[in-house]
Computed example of a mutant assay.
Amino acid sequence: MSQTKQVLILYYSRHGAIAAMAQQIARGVDSVAQTEARLRTVAPVSEVCASVAASIPETGAPYACLEDLKTCDALALGSPGRFGNMAAPLKYFLEKTSSLWLSGELVGKPAGVFTSTSSLHGGQESTLLSMMTPLLHHGMLITGLPYTQADLISTQTGGTPYGPSHVAGSENKPTLSAEEQRLCRALGKRLAELAHKL
């Protein structure tokens, strides 16, 4: 009997869309036997990159610590797009992972990424690529979504082979389309299955 695998879903969400995506990814993770999703977020930062939040969030997922990364078997990393790049709070957290890089703690673990933008052409794919870069430096094994996911062909909202995405619109609506939900769940399931296989 194999042991329970943990998939860390680490994200920053400002208007709720990324948090909604994280919940759907968790559903996909939890659909795989002996796999558990662990939701974690990061604190907002000020313009001088100092934490501006209390040490424990009032609602939602707890703040991540390096131990969460160290002990996970797989990782889903999510951020809203900021001019085609990940948001500063997530980047700030990742820049504090040098000790994990030096010790090789993340080498060989599967990872995937997800994002949300206000517009369909708001830099979704470049945001996803920006999140992959530090994960590659950590030696993680990046997975996306294969085109066997029919929603990648038919979606009129979010969804890319680089990872799930959401189009929030100018009003930043966190409600995910049916295709976006299915693609999020597909990434969660894929990471969970890879965690067991690897």
Score class of each variant (00 low, 15 high):
M1G: 14
Q3C: 10
Q6C: 09
Y11G: 02
Y12T: 01
Y12A: 02
Y12F: 09
R14A: 07
R14G: 08
G16W: 03
A17M: 04
A17S: 05
A17I: 00
A19N: 07
A19D: 10
A22Y: 06
A22N: 01
A22W: 04
Q24D: 07
Q24R: 13
Q24P: 06
Q24E: 11
I25A: 07
A26Q: 02
A26D: 05
R27P: 07
G28E: 03
G28W: 08
V32N: 10
A33N: 08
T35H: 05
T35P: 05
E36A: 14
E36L: 13
A37P: 08
L39K: 02
R40Q: 13
A43W: 11
V45M: 15
S46A: 15
V48E: 15
C49M: 15
A50N: 15
S51T: 15
S51C: 15
V52G: 13
A54V: 13
S55W: 10
P57Y: 04
P57T: 03
P57V: 02
E58G: 12
T59D: 15
G60E: 08
P62Y: 09
Y63R: 06
Y63D: 12
A64P: 07
L66N: 09
A74W: 05
L75Y: 09
L77N: 12
L77Q: 10
P80A: 02
G81F: 03
R82G: 04
F83S: 06
M86C: 01
M86Q: 02
M86V: 01
A87P: 01
A88K: 05
L90S: 08
K91T: 09
F93K: 11
F93C: 09
L94I: 15
K96R: 15
T97C: 14
S98F: 14
S98G: 15
L100T: 08
L102Q: 13
S103N: 11
S103E: 13
G104K: 01
G104Y: 05
L106K: 08
V107M: 04
K109L: 03
P110K: 00
A111S: 00
G112M: 00
V113C: 03
S116E: 00
T117M: 03
H121A: 08
H121S: 11
G122Q: 04
Q124H: 14
S126A: 10
S126E: 14
L129H: 11
S130L: 12
S130W: 12
T133S: 12
M140T: 06
G144N: 07
L145S: 02
P146Y: 03
Q149T: 03
A150K: 10
A150R: 10
Q156N: 09
T157S: 08
T157A: 10
P161H: 05
Y162P: 01
Y162H: 05
H166R: 06
V167F: 11
S170L: 14
N172F: 13
P174G: 06
T175E: 11
S177A: 06
A178R: 08
E179D: 13
E180V: 05
E180C: 02
Q181G: 00
Q181A: 01
L183K: 01
L183S: 00
R185E: 09
A186D: 00
L187R: 01
L187M: 03
A192I: 03
A192C: 02
L194W: 10
L194E: 09
A195S: 07
K197P: 07
L198Q: 07
